[in-house]
Design a binder for these strands. Structure first.
Lengths: 246, 246
DNA sequence: TCTTCCGGTTGACATGGGTCAACGGTACAA
DNA sequence: TTGTACCGTTGACCCATGTCAACCGGAAGA
């Protein structure tokens, strides 16, 4: 095991019931009784340094992960070197669901900054969710939400033009920052233009140009990774009123 | 309820245990004991005529559906009329998983031909999967597989060129026909060029041109919706060796 | 059988985004 | 603090795919 990975097993007796990420994470909507039963679920925490993988494509699947601090990207690599970023994940979000189907992970999960995750052994999750209805239901919702999210990305990639994609991306980030108690108008992106581009099916130059145009039009103020949304309504309009509609 | 929809509740006592779609469907990998308990799961069957919806975006989510005969597409419609097909589903595949997260369906499911589905009431599924481990696990696998599949589509849409996308699509269809005991080399597509295009993020003309080029190059024989794959290896090579790699 | 319409094909042309290249700023490491 | 590598920006040009239009053929209905 890499030096960049550390495991803490001690002091997790109250992993979930005392966590302030509750409403964003797996335990959402569970009552106190159920919540305390959840505490036994989290086996350990794991710290991942920036740029380091939490898991890689092909790794044996044994656990899913809830992000406690930091953020990640997931991606798929093709033999010829092409990369497709399939998602960016923030605190409270769940990583590793791709591994259930074949018991091998099918993508890479890489930390975008120094991060920490809760390790949720999958066997234990299945076992516990057989008796804790709230957990079973919530887990299904998390998986379903991932499917719906992916369909949204397919919409982006298949039907929208470059600027629409970036606008949708910014609004999505804004909304997720808001849900975490941060400003909806001003935030710091943890990923590079190239990673954004890969996610949106664009080249980094196109992403950069779209940012510049948004800035020129007074929609956002961009300074490297620091983003300030000046006209959220304008961004929304960009997506809804397709220039080429007939 | 539309005249195009009919419900049969009788004679379903052995819905799953006597179904020949077993290995492709939800009961995959379950033993006989579990299998017989599954029979109580399928509430009814429903026939859907070609072009009719099984459910629509916004409909209340109450059940998932296993396709017994026929095939479907799922799509999302944007206000401005743009459509994104998010998937094509064949016998044994599960529809409706998108609805779990919000208890409303988030896409439309439309029959591509006269079809029949098994209605699996979701509440019953959750209840039964609390005692039948095999069902719980298999259901999770089905959801996870959907996530992995979606990531593959994101790869298509985000990183591949038109001909690569179509080649990947054809190989995927071929493989799924094979799994259902049909020829891997010769099959009948149920969807139009426009639907294929929407799924692959291309215009129908581009799909048509790519088909023509494949035909010219001796990779496939195309006659309208009837496809014969002449050089599967050639199609695979098309995907792997990206022309623009450096 | 004839008609109509829809889906598919093909051509000519337009354009959004990719490619290649140069350069500048920022952040991290020494 | 200085050096350096990475990241981001911008410009010029190009090409894959979209757009628009014409036409064809098969399927379904009169």
């Amino acid at each position: 095991m890499k030096a960049t990975v550390s495991i803490t097993a001690a002091g997790l007796k109250k992993a979930c019931s005392q966590c302030n990420l509750l409403e964003l994470c797996l335990p959402f909507g569970m009552d106190d009784t159920d919540l305390h039963r959840l505490d036994e679920l989290v086996g350990a925490r794991r710290k991942i340094k920036r740029q380091q993988p939490l898991y890689r494509s092909g790794d044996l699947f044994e656990a899913i992960y809830a992000i406690r601090t930091g953020s990640f990207k997931t991606d798929i690599l093709l033999e010829d070197g092409r990369e497709q970023v399939t998602g960016f994940q923030m605190t409270g979000e769940i990583l590793g669901l791709d591994g259930i189907s074949t018991e091998l992970h099918s993508c890479n999960a890489v930390a975008l900054e120094d991060s920490e995750v809760c390790v949720i052994p999958y066997a234990k999750l299945e076992e516990l969710s057989r008796t804790v209805e709230g957990l079973q239901h919530q887990f299904h919702k998390v998986m379903s939400r991932e499917i719906v999210r992916d369909h949204g990305v397919m919409m982006l990639l298949g039907s929208m033009r470059a600027e629409e994609r970036l606008a949708a991306f910014l609004l999505n980030m804004s909304q997720r920052f808001t849900a975490r108690g941060f400003s909806s108008a001003e935030f710091h992106l943890r990923m590079t233009r190239e990673e954004i581009g890969s996610y949106l099916g664009l080249k980094l130059e196109t992403v950069s140009r779209a940012f510049s145009r948004f800035q020129m039009e007074g929609l956002v103020a961009v300074q490297q990774k620091h983003i300030r949304i000046l006209d959220g309504a304008g961004l929304k309009k960009l997506i809804q009123h397709h220039a080429n509609m007939r």
